[in-house]
Design a protein around this nucleic acid. Structure first.
Lengths: 204, 204
DNA sequence: TTGCGTCTATTCACTGGTCGGTATACATCG
DNA sequence: CGATGTATACCGACCAGTGAATAGACGCAA
C-alpha cells in the first residue's frame, strides 16, 4: 500500500525522533534536526513554537505505536497468562540486542529533564506509562486476579528496570531475567486468587 | 569529630556532585561548577583534565557511600530475609519523598550519555551496580538460596525500575510496591531452596 | 483571461549568549 | 630558583530563537 506523501511537520518529527532517541535532548541542536529533515531551522520554527514543543511532539508520536507493539507481543504469544507476560520481555530483549537500541525514550527523556518536573515531555511520558499500567491492570482483572493494580505496577517496575539496567550494562539477558521474575509474580498472584482444592482457605 | 579542611579537589567534586545530580551533565557548565566551588574555571582545569573527567569523579565519589547506605539499611532491619530486603526499598521511598531527590545519579548519567557507550562515567556506573548485585548474591547464597544470582538480579531490576518510575511519576509509593514484589520473590526463592516436609519434591 | 491581493510556507542572514577549553602571567612557598 | 596553584582574559564553536524578504498557490474582480 502506497503511503501518502509525508507532510513537512511529519518529516520534522521523524527526523527529531531519530536524533533525540539516539543522542538525547540536550545532545541534539535544532539545526541538526532541521538539516536531517532537509529544511532550514527557520522553517522548523514555523511549524513548532520552540524546541520544547518539538520534544513533546517526539514523545507524543511514540505513544500509541509503542503501546500497540506491546499489546501485539502479548496477544501473539501462545500459552497461559504468565507466558504471555513473559513474551513481552523476550521480544524486548530481541529488540535490545540491536546496536541502535538505546533504552526507553520516555524514561531517558524524563531522566534528562528531571529538574523540570512540569515539562510537557515528562507529562506525556508519565501518561504513556500510565496507559500501559492500565492495560495490564484490566488484563489481569479479566483473568480474575485479585490485586490487579499491584501486580500491574510490579510488572511495570520490572519492565522499566530492565530498560535501565540493560542500557547501563549493554547486556540484554537482564531483560529475560526480568521476564522470569514477572512470570513468577503473575503465577504467584494467580495462585492466590484462584485457590486450588488442596489449599485450606478455599472460598465458599 | 572535626573533619579535616577539604582539599581544593574535594571542594570541586562536592560542588560538581550537587550540580550534576540536580541538573544533569549537559545541563551544568564547567563555569557553574567552578563558581559553586568558589574558584575560577582555570583552577578547575588545573585539577581535572576535562569535563568528562569531572563527571567520572562525581560518580566515583558516590560509589562507596551509596553501597554502604544500602548495606546499613539491610543490616539494621529486624526480621527474616524478605523483610530485610524490603527495608531497602522502604528506606529509599522515604528518601525519594524529599523534594531534592532526583532518582539514581548513576542511571540518570547513563541515560544521558547513552550514545557514548565507553564513557568512563558509564563504566563506573556499571561497576557500581555490579558491586551491589554481587553483595546481594553473596547475601542470598549465605542464606542457602539456590539460584542466588538470578534472585539478586531480579531485586536489582526492581530497584532500578523504581528509580525510573518514581522519578517519572513523582510518586514514591511505587517504591513500596517494588519492595513488596522483592519480598515476594525472595520468599518464593526461599521456599524453592528449602522445601518443607509437606512438599513432595523434597531433595534426598 | 489577465492582473492583483493575500495567505502559507520557505529561505538567508543574523543576534546575543553560552560552551569547553586555553595562553599567559602572577603569587606563594620550600 | 622552581614547583605548585590561582587568576584574568580570551578563543572559536555552537546554540536557541528571530527579522525581513520571497516564492508560489489560490481566490476574485475587471
Amino acid at each position: 500500500m502506497a503511503r501518502p506523501e509525508p507532510s513537512t511537520r511529519e518529516r520534522i518529527v521523524s527526523a527529531a525522533s531519530k536524533l533525540f532517541y539516539s543522542d538525547g535532548i540536550k545532545g541534539v541542536s535544532v539545526d541538526a534536526v532541521a538539516e536531517k529533515a532537509g529544511l532550514t531551522k527557520r522553517t522548523l520554527y514555523y511549524h513548532f513554537r520552540s524546541k520544547d514543543d518539538l520534544v513533546a511532539a517526539y514523545l507524543e508520536a511514540r505513544d500509541q505505536p509503542n503501546l500497540a507493539l506491546f499489546r501485539r507481543w502479548f496477544d501473539e504469544a501462545e500459552g497461559e497468562l504468565p507466558v504471555k507476560v513473559e513474551a513481552i520481555f523476550s521480544n524486548l530483549a530481541r529488540a535490545a540486542r540491536h546496536p541502535k537500541w538505546k533504552g526507553c525514550g520516555f524514561l531517558r527523556t524524563s531522566a534528562e529533564l528531571a529538574n523540570l518536573p512540569g515539562h510537557p515531555a515528562i507529562r506525556i511520558g508519565a501518561a504513556h506509562k500510565k496507559k500501559f499500567e492500565n492495560w495490564l491492570r484490566t488484563t489481569f482483572e479479566a483473568a480474575g486476579i485479585g490485586n490487579s493494580l499491584q501486580l500491574a505496577r510490579q510488572i511495570l517496575l520490572l519492565l522499566d528496570g530492565s530498560f535501565a539496567v540493560v542500557l547501563l550494562h549493554r547486556d540484554a539477558s537482564y531483560m529475560e531475567t526480568a521476564g522470569e521474575a514477572a512470570a513468577t509474580l503473575v503465577t504467584s498472584a494467580l495462585a492466590a486468587s484462584r485457590p486450588v482444592a488442596s489449599r485450606q482457605n478455599r472460598r465458599r
